[in-house]
Design a protein around this nucleic acid. Sequence first.
DNA 1: ACTCCAATCCAGACAGTGTCAGGATGCGGA
DNA 2: TCCGCATCCTGACACTGTCTGGATTGGAGT
Lengths: 199, 199
Amino acid sequence: MPRPYHHGSLHGALLEAAERILRRDGIGALTLRSVAREAGVSHASPAHHFRDFAELLSALAAVGFTRLRDRMAAEAATVRRGGGARRRGLGRGYVAFARENPNLFLLMFRSDQLDRMHAGLVAAREAAFALLAGENPDTTRLLAATARWSLVHGLSLLAIDGRLQSIASRTALSDEQILDAVLSADAGRRPAPAPAPTW
Amino acid sequence: MPRPYHHGSLHGALLEAAERILRRDGIGALTLRSVAREAGVSHASPAHHFRDFAELLSALAAVGFTRLRDRMAAEAATVRRGGGARRRGLGRGYVAFARENPNLFLLMFRSDQLDRMHAGLVAAREAAFALLAGENPDTTRLLAATARWSLVHGLSLLAIDGRLQSIASRTALSDEQILDAVLSADAGRRPAPAPAPTW
DNA sequence: ACTCCAATCCAGACAGTGTCAGGATGCGGA
DNA sequence: TCCGCATCCTGACACTGTCTGGATTGGAGT
């Protein structure tokens, strides 16, 4: 029984195919035509569901950000006490997501090829950031969340590139221990007091 | 007077041409053929100086890392007192380099398309990192340097993507003030004590 | 129930990419 | 002087993303 001429839900199928390729063959193999092949349609069909290849990638990145948010929330939910422990859990979830989905993570932050104005992408990214900053954050909270995001993001990149392990090999610690040490040091400190406006 | 058949020093000329394109037209315009055109040679000539296009990009990234190191050193040299002020200077230099050379900075950290085993690249990168970690760093110093690198790297990405400004727009601070606040908070704190090995 | 129309999908073509093969050129050592 | 070989060029190949034009079909309106 052959596949019907009209796929029915090609939009989602293309995203799933793209993620499958990303996970199986890496970023280098992720092309518009390979996605179409993986989904079993002609190479021009995606144009009816995504204006650009950049739009397809941006939609995939948006999926990644919602998953990142979920992963952080799940990890934070494992701790009972709030405050520093919860923040450390969020950070651990961030890095865990990056290590579990390295290719997707890299795709999410590759500035070129992505449409940075893509509506779903910016929404999903802000939602993820909001998890670190809390609701209606004031300046101090926003600063602290920014520093935390920067820290875990940089750590994730180091971990993905294997540079964390190369650092660990020079010490008596495993990369996991380094992660915990850095995250604990960050979660335990107080954010910097906001400088007074200059006007 | 036409250009002689043999260029003489095409290796360096290609790197300069690539950086010119990167600065003028962005990462999307940086292709092997465009570099060859910019240098005024045929599209197959670069193959005699760079095995791959990835090798050319890696060599360019290596140049970027030495410049990054120089930029950090220059900024740190402007402060008289050592310790926290110097570390803050290094971080400021890091972010400054990223903002002054956004495309080159993004190229340096684009994991795909780059040959991560490229000898010159890893050497230049480690040299830059060594500036943050100091000479013969012990575990504690290495951890602190890792955290610092992560922080300033994440901050640089936020700054380049304009997300730092979008955060600043929600506060009463300029992005410069946010940068200084985060960097000061980081430079002032003590690194986490290294956990004891588990064996 | 019938008709159409618009959404969906396909086949083909186009310029541009990185890489490889084969021939031209000329510099430097013998 | 002469000749090897690094350097450079032209041409080709299999890809890529995007565009055009035609085939198919589900579903809304009559």
